[in-house]
Simulated assay, not measured.
Amino acid sequence: MKNKTIAVWLTFWGGPLGLHRLYLLGRYDTLARLLPIPTLLGLYGVYRARSIGLDDMWSWLLIPLLGFTIAACALNALVYGLMDAEKWNRRFNPAQPTEAAPGQTNWFTVAGLVVTLLLGTTALMASLAFSIQRYFEYQYNQDQTVSATDFRKSEY
C-alpha cells in the first residue's frame, strides 16, 4: 500500500533523485531513472561556481537545472498531498477501498506540504533570479566588448 504522507515527504527529500517515483510507480519508471541527471548536472554547476567562481558560464547554465528540478518535485509533492483519498487510493492502491487509510491526509502530510511549498518556491525564485541576472550580466559584458572593438575601429 502506498501512503500519501510518505510520498509527500519522499518527494520533498528524495524527489530530485526520483525516489518518490520509485516508491509510487516502481523501478521500471523511466522518469525515476532520468531525474538524477539534471540534479547531478546542477550539483556539478554548484561545484564549478564554488571552485572557479560565479563568472563561469557553465555554472550559470547548470545551476538552474538543480533549482528547476527541486521546484518541479515540490509541485509534484503538492499534487500528491492535495489529492483526495478516493483518487489517491484508486491510482496507487487499487486493491484497497477508496476510503482506505493510506490515502487520507493527516497533520504530517500538511506539514510536508508546508515545507515543500517553502522549499519549492525558494528554489524556483532563486533559480530564476540567478539565471536571469547571469544572462543580463553576460549580455552587458558582450555589449561592452563590442563597443570597445567598434571604438577602436573608428579611431583608424
Rank of each mutant, 00 (worst) to 15 (best):
L118D: 12
R21G: 01
V146P: 02
V115A: 11
D84T: 00
V79W: 14
R134T: 03
W60T: 09
S51Y: 13
I37R: 13
G42D: 03
L118T: 04
D150F: 11
F136R: 09
P64V: 04
R152Y: 00
Y135V: 10
D150G: 06
A74Y: 01
A7L: 01
Y28A: 00
A72G: 06
V114E: 15
M83W: 09
I70F: 05
V79Q: 14
N106L: 05
W107Y: 11
L119D: 11
W58N: 12
L19E: 12
T5G: 00
R152C: 07
D56H: 09
F12C: 08
Y138M: 12
F68E: 04
W9C: 02
T39F: 08
Y28K: 00
K153L: 09
L82K: 14
N89A: 12
Y44T: 05
W58C: 13
Y23S: 07
A32D: 00
A101H: 00
F136H: 15
L61N: 04
T116W: 03
G120C: 07
R152L: 04
L35T: 03
V46K: 05
L118P: 00
L113A: 06
K4Q: 11
C73G: 05
F92K: 02
D29W: 03
R50V: 10
K153P: 03
R50Q: 15
D29C: 01
L54A: 15
N89R: 11
T30E: 07
R90H: 15
R27M: 08
L65K: 05
L113W: 05
W9S: 04
E99R: 12
S147P: 04
V114G: 12
I52G: 07
L25C: 11
D55T: 12
K153E: 13
R48W: 06
W13N: 02
I6A: 09
V8M: 06
N141I: 04
P36F: 08
G67F: 02
M83A: 14
T69I: 02
C73P: 02
F12L: 15
T121H: 09
A100D: 06
N89H: 12
D143W: 09
Q133A: 06
G18L: 00
S127P: 04
V114F: 15
T69P: 08
W107N: 10
A100L: 09
A148E: 01
V114Y: 14
G103V: 07
G103N: 04
W9Q: 05
P94R: 11
I70V: 13
L41P: 02
S51C: 07
V146K: 07
P97N: 11
L113K: 02
A126L: 03
K153H: 15
A100Q: 07
Q142H: 10
T98I: 08
P36A: 14
L75N: 05
M125E: 08
R48M: 13
V110T: 13
P64H: 06
T30A: 04
L34F: 10
N89F: 06
G81Y: 02
L25V: 02
R21N: 08
G103Y: 02
L35K: 09
W58Y: 10
Y47C: 06
S51Q: 15
A129F: 08
